[in-house]
Amino acid sequence: MKTAQEMKPNSVILIDGQPWMVQKAEFTKSGRNSAIVKMKLKNLLSGSTTETVYKTDDKVEPVILERIAVTYSYVADSVYVFMDEDYNQYELNEDDIESVLPYIVDGMTDICEAVFFEGKVISVDLPTMIVRQITYTEGSARGDTSGKVMKPAKLSNGTEIKVADFCEIDDWIEIDTRTGEYKSRAKAPV
């Protein structure tokens, strides 16, 4: 057991036999020097989210999830297949990987992490920074080079993202998968 105040974003706790990931933890002082923490939790099995409140010294049951490095192989009938270095395949439904789905593209070489709970693969995490290619965007309207003016662009899987105005079709860009935000132009992955 750990105390609620030890739980940080990405910590996982067990509630009623289900793993819940802490997405957000906000601490506030209550009265008489006590404190509470409000958490936004995501159920790693169902994908549902909820909000909870704990006293900071409340006990919670932490879960250490097993993780294995995998790469994306293919998708068939909405089942996404990932493979580890021993060529073991792990199948995940769209719902299991909803948060990373916008960044799954054919031919991607990112080293991902398959996440396991009680021996069963439940999701996949992408690296924090990934590089993707723009397949369509309008030309730069104002010739802005500062990177502050943004415009929409599409990736090869149809995902739309805001990029700097100076980005062009076929440019490679770096994306932060935690926020889904464009970070910079990048070199093509080797």
Binding site: D16, T28, S30, G31, K38, E51
Partner: peptide, 27 residues
């Protein structure tokens, strides 16, 4: 909990606090 006029109070009122023994507590 204690009385407070702070903004965050409304966002926490009535929220569950699931306990390890399967009981649900509410704030």
């Amino acid at each position: 909990e204690y009385l407070s006029a702070e903004d965050w109070v409304g966002g926490c009122n009535g929220l569950p606090s699931p306990q390890p023994n399967g009981l649900q507590k509410y704030f």
